[in-house]
């Protein structure tokens, strides 16, 4: 495993591209749901980006026609991956070596509100915040917008790593 590739490291922010994200996350296509992550200097928050492709598996149901909204579950998954990447980056930097996470488990969520929908071609923008860590469990929060319009808020998301 290699050190994450960073496109741009400055005093204020670090930007992780898709290769760097794949190096952190255990997810692999077709369920890699984050394209880019801009991490704040204090590693307590990040902004993730994901463009919804029209050829994603969820849109391959030939019995359905027309432009359909992106599944809510995948909106939450994408937000969760942005939050998880922030967490794993914190772990890797703290341990001064590569993270060895093979599996991430979604353990709990509270206060998830769906305010709108996203469609193919839209870019999801996730603002995620790292709240705290207990052992191999992390508590995070976040909100998602599409086209500048808020579509989801998550008050609390808890993930566990193995």
């Amino acid at each position: 495993m290699t050190t994450p590739t960073t496109l741009n490291t400055q005093a204020a922010h670090t930007t992780l591209d898709s290769a760097a994200l794949l190096d952190l996350l255990p997810h692999r296509p077709p369920i890699v749901m984050i394209d880019l992550l801009r991490v704040g200097a204090d590693r307590s928050s990040a902004v993730g980006h994901k463009t919804i492709g029209p050829d994603e598996p969820c849109f391959q149901d030939t019995e359905q026609t027309g432009s359909r909204a992106y599944p809510r579950g995948l909106v939450v998954e994408s937000l969760g991956q942005a939050a998880a990447a922030l967490w794993l980056l914190r772990q890797r930097e703290r341990r001064d070596g590569p993270a060895t996470v093979k599996v991430l488990y979604f353990a709990k969520a509270q206060g998830v509100r769906f305010l709108g929908d996203a469609h193919p071609g839209d870019e999801l923008v996730h603002e995620v915040r790292f709240e705290r860590e207990v052992g191999e469990t992390a508590i995070m929060s976040g909100r998602t917008s599409a086209g500048g319009v808020p579509i989801a808020v998550v008050d609390s998301l808890i993930a566990a790593s193995r």
Partner: peptide
């Protein structure tokens, strides 16, 4: 199942958000 091949290679787990779906 769609998406399952990437979640996770060698250690497949049905994604929690899919249960929400």
């Amino acid at each position: 199942e769609p998406y399952l091949s990437g979640h996770y290679p060698g250690a497949p787990v049905y994604p929690g958000v899919f249960l929400l779906d």
